[in-house]
Nucleic acid binder design. Structure first.
Lengths: 207, 207
DNA sequence: AAAGCGTTATGACGTTTGTCATGCCGCTTT
DNA sequence: AAAGCGGCATGACAAACGTCATAACGCTTT
């Protein structure tokens, strides 16, 4: 526990194999970083985190089985000491907010240079934060998610092209109730109709 | 023109900086491959292809300014001798078909291991093809795009939440005509409504 | 010249969607 | 106990949507 010579043990969770492999190879070139495990989805990552006790976890958000945000939340509630960096395509304030709520220390965009990833890992391992500055500023001034859980469920399905009656059957609600929720969601988001509302909510990371 | 010792000159077009950088670094580790130029969109790639005359072009499809498919088509119609590999997230038969029509020699998915990329580059440079086998089989049996150009235009906008009257105004059509096209598209795709139709068309690479 | 096809249009009809007022129920806060 | 709130419901109405029949026009294929 004396010097700084110990390598940082990293778990990499990313469903796109090519990106995951390329990043792992790049990180291995750094003398102070070692990728000790790789996962293609959140559930696998959860298992590997228990097994390998990494210092830092780098995870995508949108993955099959379990999202990176759910994984981060699960880690926070476990006894794991791993620090989490979210690595995602999406500059959505809602995602950043949820990431920080889930205890993430870093939030990095895939549109940034690969070199920033190693830097973020070192910062986070040292106890600092690593949040994209532009995004952090935007998130500060961004509106909060105005949708209730029900509204979210219903808007999701409507955005996929389901009719009100289909949604009502699926969620065991009356058709009128579904229309009420959609109407409210449309108003809250300032949208023109259900599809527009779904688009807006998705773009802000609320869906 | 005697031996095989010449390095393969590659142009890499991919809008996600982190992936582009990581792949370029990985490819540079191969002794017979050299990434001579990188582009973040199709238009830039087009310019760089003229300037650097690469042997092989590796390009994403969905990029700003100009898609990889448009870029590939432009290359085919120029005097360029570069051979094209499409590198994309999407296993959509429609994309593969359009890629081959655009003269692409390779079609590789981002969910494949990074090692396959170097292999595909070598194959394509040697005059062979490099198409994901599973996808090629699927594309063979896949339906052809049933949509007319007008139907596609209108379906795109409908999928973004625009109303019939908005679409009509934008495209200088009567509202009834727009509804007719949507009705036809819905029928052709076996969809339940316009949003469902847009979803289906997108999933097959027809939009 | 005739047939076929894509594009555009109109009118009419039934269905779905979006809005609003009103009300009930269970839970928490006061 | 009363007030407030979120979830759920009903009914009514106008607007938007989806379907169908019909038809004109221009272009290509036969």
């Amino acid at each position: 526990m004396s010097a700084a010579a110990k390598t940082i043990r990293v778990l990499l969770a990313e469903d796109q194999t090519m990106l995951r492999g390329a990043l792992a190879a790049l990180l291995e070139l750094e003398s102070d970083i070692s990728v000790v495990a790789q996962a293609a989805n959140g559930r696998e990552a959860q298992r590997l985190a228990r097994e390998f006790t990494p210092d830092v976890v780098v995870t995508d958000i949108e993955m099959p089985e379990m999202t990176g945000l759910e994984f981060a939340t699960a880690l926070k509630e476990s006894e794991s000491k791993a620090r989490v960096i979210i690595l995602t395509t999406f500059a959505r304030p809602g995602y950043l907010r949820r990431a920080l709520d889930a205890g993430a220390r870093g939030y990095l965009l895939k549109e940034r240079p690969a070199s920033e990833l190693a830097e973020a890992i070192r910062r986070v391992h040292a106890g600092l934060r690593a949040v994209d500055p532009a995004l952090a500023a935007e998130a500060w001034s961004a509106d909060e998610d105005p949708l209730s859980e029900r509204e979210r469920q219903i808007l999701q399905r409507a955005g996929d092209g389901r009719s009100s009656s289909e949604i009502a059957t699926e969620l065991r609600l009356s058709e009128g109730t579904v229309r009420n929720y959609l109407s409210e969601a449309i108003t809250k988001l300032g949208a023109a109709n259900r599809v527009d509302a779904a688009r807006i909510a998705r773009a802000r990371g609320w869906l």
